[in-house]
């Protein structure tokens, strides 16, 4: 579904991503893990076209590395931005409605019902202003908003960031539930253990390059990964 070839991101003269290649197949969850500053988020932002990048990004075979970012949701790719990025002064319901901004089909109402079923907390708080939700609830809302765009591929940028451990568990349960319904997910995450337990495959990034690529089970067993990212 997603094929990335020789992706390069530069900030001024500094190369943050030095020619990475990876892919995400239909229906699978893939994790991109690595330390702080390894280039994970830059990679994801480049894929979401929020950062200019060199290289090829193909979505279902179509080159998207020339499209403006707002066109991607119509192409089936939704981004849950780092730090959630909910519309703080709008209500939960208004946030979710905004997620369907690019859609004109009749299924929006049904999808909203589905999202409320998946995330009952949002339904309870649908009239509440998004900025007053807890961090975990905001993450759920950002996820729900992305799903309202009816994507085929979901890009998640650090969903555990800044959340209490219990909330992190809940957020990842939800991500697994979304994956179980057949969603294709690319997950960027610092919490390597959690990410690999959720994904079927993973890529490890180190100073702008992918150094390891394997199934999650193998990566979790790999001594290099265990030492560097799982704290052993």
């Amino acid at each position: 579904m997603l094929e990335v070839l020789n992706l390069e991101v530069h900030y001024g003269g500094i190369a943050a991503v030095k020619g990475v290649s990876f892919n995400v197949r239909q229906g699978e969850t893939v994790a991109l893990i690595g330390a702080n500053g390894a280039g994970k988020t830059s990679t994801l932002k480049a894929v979401a076209r929020q950062l200019p990048a060199r290289g090829s990004i193909r979505l279902s075979g179509e080159e998207i590395n020339a499209l403006p970012p707002h066109r991607l949701i119509r192409k089936g790719m939704a981004l849950v931005p780092e730090g959630r990025g909910v519309f703080a002064r709008l209500t939960v319901a208004e946030n979710l409605a905004m997620g369907a901004y690019s859609r004109k089909d009749a299924g929006i109402h049904d999808d909203l019902a589905k999202i409320y079923a998946l995330l009952p907390r949002l339904k309870e708080r649908h009239k509440q202003v998004a900025g007053t939700l807890s961090g975990g609830e905001q993450q759920m809302l950002a996820l729900g908003r992305a799903l309202m765009g009816k994507p085929r591929l979901l890009l998640l940028d650090e969903p555990s960031m800044g959340l209490a451990p219990l909330m992190v568990q809940k957020v990842f349960e939800t991500i697994r539930a979304v994956a179980a319904e057949g969603m294709t997910i690319l997950l960027v995450e610092q919490n390597a253990k959690l990410a690999l337990e959720t994904a079927s495959r993973g890529y490890v990034m180190e100073s702008g390059s992918i150094t390891l690529a394997d199934t999650s089970a193998n990566l979790l067993a790999d001594p290099r990964v265990r030492q560097a990212y799982l704290g052993e």
Binding site: P69, H70, I73, V80, P81, G85, L90, A97, Y101, R145
Partner: peptide, 25 residues
């Protein structure tokens, strides 16, 4: 209007506005 909602969205968060499909420019 739709355009009014788009304005609200960019006022709140431009990155997120782009992500939901708003041509912010």
């Amino acid at each position: 209007s739709r355009i009014g909602r788009a304005w609200q969205a960019i006022r709140e968060d431009e990155t997120a506005a782009r992500a939901v499909g708003i041509d912010t420019t």
